[in-house]
């Protein structure tokens, strides 16, 4: 049984936001929702100013508050200690969103991907509307990744929540999460915490780490190394 975790090297991260965007492509995530996101923070007084760009995502916490709060076991831990979500069990009560200290769960208040059903174009008579593009391509949702549907709803419907799955569909094929694969700076490393000689443990041993809000007791499994 594995225990997946991610290490993010903040010295390598260039703050390009590629992870935010490629995650959307891989997981068919709608506008306004981010499974992979970031926050920035500027502290200090000139000339001693510090600027941080910190990528964020579901921490797949060991002691996941969202799993405890969910009244239907729709949010659960799998055998790789990932925090996953069963869309068929979800009643859309949003208790998990309230319980997660990291605000990484999103609710689908409307039918997602409305852009591709919208006949209005950004520049009238100048650009194609989403609807036109979808019709021309013969797809309900252009750029749809069918691979996503192998382990989770390809598109999560209205009325339920959704969040990062650590690309469990890619892990099942022996591939790394897409944010790790697509990071141009090689700032992200995913692996098994139970493998003592794995890259994750080597990096943690070499640099030490920080986690987000360790005091809330969720035991997050996203580790930040070489922070500022």
């Amino acid at each position: 049984m594995a225990r997946y975790a991610m290490v993010i090297d903040l010295h390598k991260c260039v703050g390009c936001g590629a992870c935010d965007i490629t995650c959307k492509n891989e997981n068919n995530v709608d506008r306004g929702i981010f499974w992979a996101h970031h926050f920035t923070r500027t502290t200090g007084v000139f000339p001693n100013v510090k600027y941080e760009h910190v990528p964020t995502m579901c921490n797949h916490c060991n002691n996941a508050a969202c799993v405890k709060a969910c009244p239907t076991k729709a949010m659960y831990k799998d055998d790789k200690r990932l925090t996953l979500h069963d869309p068929k069990k979800c009643i859309g009560c949003k208790s998990c969103m309230q319980a997660c200290p990291y605000d990484v769960i999103s609710f689908n208040s409307k039918e997602p991907h409305g852009f591709w059903r919208d006949a209005n174009s950004v520049i009238p008579d100048g650009t194609a509307s989403g609807k036109e593009t979808a019709e021309k391509l013969g797809q309900k949702i252009p750029y749809y990744n069918p691979e996503r549907a192998t382990t989770y709803a390809g598109i999560r419907p209205k009325g339920i929540v959704e969040k990062c799955t650590f690309c469990d569909h890619r892990l099942a094929k022996g591939e790394e999460p897409y944010c790790v694969f697509s990071c141009p700076a090689g700032a992200r490393t995913a692996g098994d915490l139970d493998n003592p000689t794995g890259q994750v443990n080597l990096l943690l041993a070499k640099y030490g780490h920080k986690q987000l809000k360790p005091h809330v007791g969720t035991e997050p499994k996203v580790y930040y190394i070489r922070y500022y």
Binding site: A74, K89, I91, N108, S109
Partner: peptide
């Protein structure tokens, strides 16, 4: 609730 029709599943799940 986003899915009120599933409310009773809080009993069996």
């Amino acid at each position: 609730l986003g899915r009120p029709e599933r409310f009773l599943s809080t009993l069996y799940n």
